[in-house]
Amino acid sequence: MRRIAFIFPGQGAQYVGMGKDIVEKYEIAADIFTKASNAVGYDMKKLCFEGPEEELIKTENTQPAILTTCIAIAKVLEDKGIKADVSAGLSLGEYAALVVSGALSFEDAVALVKKRGRYMQEAVPIGKGAMAAILGMERNTLLQVLKQVQSEGIVEAANFNSPGQIVISGEVKAVEKACEAAKEAGALKAVLLPVSAPFHCSMLIPAGEKLAGDLDRITINELHIPVIANVNADYYQNKCQVNELLIKQVSHSVLWEDTMLRMLEDGVNTFIEMGPGKSLNQFLKKILKKSKHNAEVYSIEDGESLETVLNSL
């Protein structure tokens, strides 16, 4: 029996032109872009299809742009009869999962992530925070390394993406020291990331506090499709958890590897990543290789990949 998960990427996957050919072919996708434009107050098609890139990569623009592209693809699949049995998204992608579940309206979600992006950027002055990818190191070993360098400042695990790929986040000096210590402890690589803020660490708590006020002002509905949250790799039990978990998510680790393993253990055997890039596909293949599970893994980011999935399923 096929059990399908819709999974959605986070910030960093964006590129000029994303979603264009899907919008040109499917009216239901075009409608989503129109709704997004009305909700955020600018032309979402123009931003996504034409850029310029320097506008698209601004955090408060990137987040609604990726969310819009993800939901446009999801709506086409649903319209063609392909439904999710469960959903999840990495960081920003969790909002797409909650839209698919019915917990959030798309219009509320796209306006919300625009503010979320601005709050995350404003929480830490540019140049004070950093993030780095640590490759080829076990989770527990890296956590010990982070403890050893805490005297240098804030540095925390931000994303547990897949076996051997963990992202750290915090103050510049502490992150740089952690990179050196990780390599000395056996990491294959430690690479500073070109990001504008130290996402998913305690330095972002003020952003979550601002987001809380906006969440209080929107309607949260019961979930019609199970969604697994980033912060605990567990299912939302009811709509009352949505505000709490989305606020925490801004400043807590993203347990993506744990989330995918939970889905696999619960019988998911078909994963469809939708949105720009193929990062979740790559993470999942590493997770599958290390685990005892098997699954079909698809990515949809353009018309060609969409047709492939429609023909396969």
Rank of each mutant, 00 (worst) to 15 (best):
L90H: 11
S169C: 15
Q241H: 01
N61D: 08
V23W: 00
R118H: 02
N294R: 14
F199R: 01
G129F: 11
S87D: 10
E273K: 00
Y95E: 08
L98H: 01
G17H: 02
L142H: 03
F160R: 07
G267N: 06
P52C: 06
T270V: 14
L284R: 01
D216S: 12
L204Q: 09
K35L: 11
I4N: 10
A132Q: 09
T62W: 07
S299G: 11
D108Y: 00
I57V: 15
I300F: 01
V86I: 13
V195L: 07
V99G: 06
D43R: 00
Y95F: 11
A84W: 03
S151F: 09
G81T: 09
D214L: 14
V309Q: 07
A88I: 10
F283V: 13
R139E: 01
F283E: 13
E53I: 13
V191G: 10
D216G: 12
I7S: 02
Q148T: 04
S162A: 14
I57C: 14
Y26M: 10
N61R: 03
G164E: 12
L47V: 08
I218D: 03
V145S: 05
M131E: 13
I166R: 06
N269W: 02
M44W: 02
G127I: 07
R139M: 04
E60K: 15
C48L: 05
F283Y: 06
G81D: 07
V250H: 01
I205N: 03
K183M: 15
K285V: 15
N281W: 13
K290Y: 08
N221L: 07
E55S: 15
C70L: 11
V191T: 10
A72I: 06
